[in-house]
């Protein structure tokens, strides 16, 4: 009886019958999608939410799922610690210096890679990749040997060198892709109406490549700001930046202090990355990793 009814219905109304055969799989894929996003939510956000809870916890004993007591006392403990102020200051000195130095060294190269043909161009472009190809810790240890020899170990410039190294790839590749994306015809049009090469660069090329350059500069700033491994190896004990301080926080301080410190340390990255989020998703980052 039921099957008869179905066939009669589908005979008259083909569209609902199609919808009926599709809908279970649609429902399935929708619930699969929900499960996927939920799993992603827990995997990505779970640890961070728990960390934030810890920062405001007075008492939190296993197996309770939320703290038994909330408290703000750890915030004042961390903020009034003199180590804290010093490492914040250091981090905010190193990161801008590294970013500006990196831009001075790499941006001309990025422009050259995208606009000039010269001997060894491809080899040099791939050569820059070598810094990323070498595993970080191995590289730092190799460099530390040279820094000892040149008396740069545990100095301001030693730390600058270590941090600068991490920025070269993003600072060259991403802007190079951004310069390449500027149509040559636009530059030629500017030249045709009488603009000189510098004026063309300043008023046509640079504004169009700006988002890519900004993404690269912020990535460089954060690479320096978040760098812990190399700075720890080269800068300790005199140049303890925020992420390096975090190592001793994790091992020597109570959970709450480390949690408070984590939140403070994440703030600059969070703010900067929110500012450039649309450019990153827009593909400027991804474009930088295809060799051209």
């Amino acid at each position: 009886m039921m099957s008869n009814q179905n066939s009669v219905q589908s005979g008259f109304l083909p569209i609902p019958s199609i919808r009926r055969t599709v809908s279970p799989s649609q429902a399935l894929s929708r619930s699969l999608a929900t499960a996927l996003v939920l799993a992603l939510l827990i995997f990505v956000l779970g640890p961070l939410v728990v960390l934030v809870l810890w920062a405001f916890a007075g008492e939190w004993f296993y197996p309770s799922l939320i703290p038994q007591k909330f408290s703000l006392s750890w915030w004042s403990t961390v903020l009034s610690d003199s180590h804290f102020g010093h490492s914040v200051l250091l981090s905010f000195i190193f990161a801008p210096v590294v970013t500006i130095l990196s831009a001075c060294i790499c941006l001309p190269a990025a422009y050259a890679f995208s606009r000039y043909q010269f001997p060894g161009r491809r080899a040099m472009f791939i050569g820059i990749f070598a810094t990323n190809a070498f595993p970080k810790m191995g590289l730092y240890i190799a460099i530390a040997g040279i820094l000892y020899a040149t008396h740069l170990m545990d100095t301001f410039w030693g730390v600058i060198v270590i941090q600068l190294m991490n920025t070269v790839v993003v600072m060259t590749w991403i802007p190079a892709a951004a310069f390449s994306a500027v149509p040559k015809s636009l530059e030629e049009a500017a030249r045709d109406v009488g603009a000189g090469p510098f004026r063309t660069f300043w008023h046509v090329t640079l504004p169009m490549a700006r988002p890519g350059i900004i993404v690269a500069m912020i990535q460089a700033f954060l690479a320096s700001f978040d760098e812990a491994q190399g700075t720890f190896l080269v800068g300790a004990p005199n140049y303890i930046t925020m992420p390096v301080q975090m190592y001793s926080m994790v091992t020597n301080y109570p959970q709450q202090a480390a949690a408070v410190y984590s939140i403070l340390l994440s703030m600059p990255s969070l703010i900067l990355l929110l500012l450039i989020r649309k450019y990153i998703v827009g593909g400027y980052l991804a474009a930088g990793f295809r060799m051209k």
């Binding site: 190269a109 000039y116 820059i128 190294m165």
Partner: peptide, 27 residues
């Protein structure tokens, strides 16, 4: 123009050779 391009590109390469290439070979 070719040489200008080469010189501009050589800047980060020189830095990397000094602080990545040389230490790697030495070690």
């Amino acid at each position: 123009r070719r040489w200008i391009g080469f010189l501009m590109a050589a800047l980060p390469i020189a830095f990397l050779l000094a602080f990545v290439g040389l230490p790697t070979v030495e070690s």
